Simulated assay, not measured.
Amino acid sequence: MIRVAVIIGSTRPGRNGEAVARWVHDLAVRRGDAEFEIVDLKEVGLPHLDEAMPPSMGVYEHPHTRAWAETIASFDAYVFVTPEYNHSISGALKNAIDFLYAEWNDKAAAFVSYGSAGGVRAVEHLRLIMGELGVADVRAQVSLSLAADFENFSVLRPAAGREAGVTAMLDQLVAWAGAMKALRAAGDYAAASVGDS
């Protein structure tokens, strides 16, 4: 069974991300083609990146890094629920991503964003980051407007059609997650392709 993490990408007090993530999760668990679990960066509680070795080396000194690596490695795909802060993602989300490398590789990702402009600029940054990590990000995304999809900018009230958007996004994500899982199962394809060039 494909395992998907719905990652809450904000740790700010009063954040909207938790309600958005729970909404996505509630819709996702109705499906029968994957397992979905919320991963809350606030509960993970990572410090600022404090590993001496680059994450690509896979040498993790601290217990919190090893625990985070185990969590991320256990999933086949990710739905990043992200706010937009200053045209980008939150520092907490970038920090959490930067702690690891191989655990992200050859997985699939989708994005649900929110903000005054729907959070689309944060997603554009996330797509660049995912590309560097070898994560296949799907085209369909859900962008929530603080004005149109939230009451008083704080209570989630998704506009009509948003559920269909989540369904389309998850359809793509689960399909890509299955393809990437098969790719990972094929073994050391990356080293082989590099050697052939």
Rank of each mutant, 00 (worst) to 15 (best):
89 I>G: 06
74 S>P: 01
42 K>L: 13
184 R>C: 01
73 A>L: 09
95 N>F: 11
114 Y>Q: 07
102 A>W: 15
69 A>Y: 15
43 E>V: 14
149 D>S: 01
171 D>F: 02
150 F>R: 01
66 R>N: 10
68 W>M: 12
195 G>Q: 14
176 W>P: 02
97 I>W: 03
4 V>A: 06
160 A>G: 12
5 A>K: 04
63 P>N: 12
112 V>C: 11
155 V>K: 07
70 E>M: 05
141 Q>R: 12
35 E>H: 14
73 A>K: 09
93 L>N: 06
154 S>A: 05
37 E>Y: 01
9 G>R: 03
182 A>S: 13
62 H>P: 08
58 G>D: 08
185 A>W: 06
154 S>P: 00
20 V>Q: 03
13 P>K: 02
81 V>A: 13
65 T>F: 14
98 D>L: 10
63 P>C: 11
35 E>C: 13
193 S>M: 15
61 E>S: 15
61 E>D: 15
131 G>Q: 08
143 S>T: 02
116 S>Q: 10
170 L>E: 03
154 S>N: 04
75 F>H: 09
105 N>P: 08
96 A>F: 03
134 G>C: 08
64 H>Q: 13
187 G>T: 04
170 L>W: 07
106 D>Q: 13
21 A>K: 02
17 G>K: 07
105 N>R: 14
75 F>S: 00
70 E>S: 10
9 G>W: 07
72 I>L: 09
152 N>L: 02
67 A>T: 13
109 A>P: 02
124 E>S: 05
66 R>M: 14
51 E>Q: 09
147 A>H: 02
81 V>G: 09
179 A>E: 06
98 D>M: 06
